[in-house]
Design a protein around this nucleic acid. Sequence first.
DNA 1: ATGGTGGTCGAACCA
Length: 262
Amino acid sequence: MSFTLATWNINSVRLREPIVLQLLREEAPDVLCLQECKSPVELIPTAGFADLGYPHMVARGQKGYNGVAILSKIPLEDAGSLDLAQLGHARHVAARLPNGVTIHNHYVPAGGDVPDRAQNEKFGQKLDYLTELRDIFAAQKPQRSILVGDLNIAPREDDVWDHKKLLKIVSHTPIEVAHLNEVMSAGHWVDVTRQDIPDGLLYSWWSYRAKDWDAADKGRRLDHVWATSDISAAAHSSRVLREARGWEKPSDHAPVFASFDL
DNA sequence: ATGGTGGTCGAACCA
């Protein structure tokens, strides 16, 4: 079984229903994982998705903030959700495909502006979220699994537009990168995007605040596709759909794709 | 050092 998967922080699934439909029409991934839906599950506009061949969804939602959803052409079994760091936020949901592969969709806390948990509670929550996730993977090694989402960390020097300038900026601080790497090693996860695209600058997010995001190109790679080591060799064809950042009423994130032959 | 933009939901919070 082969399938293509995409992950996209949509920043309101209701406001951006038109560009979700555009992505499904033009790129037709088999599975689309969304973050920051900012909607209760019952208000996600599923009818249009179903009309395009995506009748299956597992999701967790809340009013106004957070929210994650997995849309699919392929039947999905709800595989539960976690409330990491006990925030009471809808930041994770998992689904199982008929071939037994589990897809984890995460929206990691952004962490606020000050990279110090003594001054900024949100930064501590972000680190705690990652520590708890690490501990779960250390206790039980995940198998035949894919983990995607807006992890709100750009781990590599070439995942940001200026490594030195961003070392004290939340999303690229050494302590965040260390926490993310501990999650990866605890679960034996492989960074599929960098397996396929090992070299060079690569971003998936550009701030709304830049005058000309495309020309300035001050991006960061915050959105990730990982696979457990038992299936990582089946992954291929990773790409970032940068053009979606320039669509009508865009999200500040672009979708990240990967395909799997399993 | 600061402010820049955008979404939610209708003032303040979050990214």
